[in-house]
Amino acid sequence: MKFKSFSVIPGFGWTLGLGAGYFSVLVLLPFAALIAYGCGIRPSAFAKALGDGEILSALGLSLRASLVAGLINLVFGFILAWSIERYSFPGKRLLDSLIDIPFALPTAVAGVSISFLLSDDGYIGKIVNSLGFSLSGSDFTGITFALVFVGIPFVVRTLQPVIKRLDASTEEAAEMLGASPLQTFLRVTLPPLIPPALTGFSLAFARAVGEYGSVIFVSSNLPFKSQILPVVIVGKIESHNYDAAVVTALIMLAISAGILGVISFIRKWSSRNEKTV
């Protein structure tokens, strides 16, 4: 295996060392500390956490809401990225720059404004009330709303460059060769977009699983009912029960890593498929 290849920037060893060192200090070290702490905890603590109804219901809610939010973002992020890259319309550049707002806005601010929007007096709440529903009792809607908000830029920003690079002439060629618009979309346009769309989806999903700041204001945070897992973890830290907090965090990490692994497998599989076609 040959590591060194031609590069316009010299100093392969230096750059790799610097990059790896940077990543180790910022990401691997805190992560390793968490794992090391977890190794010192008795296995019975893990068993106890897995049998704890509060943790399990919070874990279930976190994963369900994050998956739904990821899927919503996948669909609407795709539409958004497509319309920004494929069409020109007034305000396009403004819209494009607004996509990043969820990155910049403190999530607590987002949470407070979303909770107000959905309350019975809020703009969205009023409209829904007039249809005969009330959102103030539906925690799942509110939590998912907040998670969609924090995740939307991930899908849009990963899809945009790929949509931009798509060669319109291949679509024209498909049409010339007699493909229907649906066939062209499904067999020519869509396949190269699946890997970046899945990447965007997993980023949005991962971001949603860890989200805390906005959800605490939107959800009613009732144990067994509407608590997300990060809230349970913070509760354990506040009761100075670090062992249980670490155990809960590790379980959440393992499950999220599993789901991300599956998505990345599908992504690789679909991109390999694409090359052979």
């Binding site: 407070v112 909770s115 007096d121 103030s136 605490i216 204001f217 009613s220 009732l222």
Partner: peptide, 21 residues
Amino acid sequence: NVPVLDTGARGATNTFVKRRI
């Protein structure tokens, strides 16, 4: 009788004052 169990005092005030719950 508690419909919303906030994580902190300021969150609870927000629920009562802003969300009117």
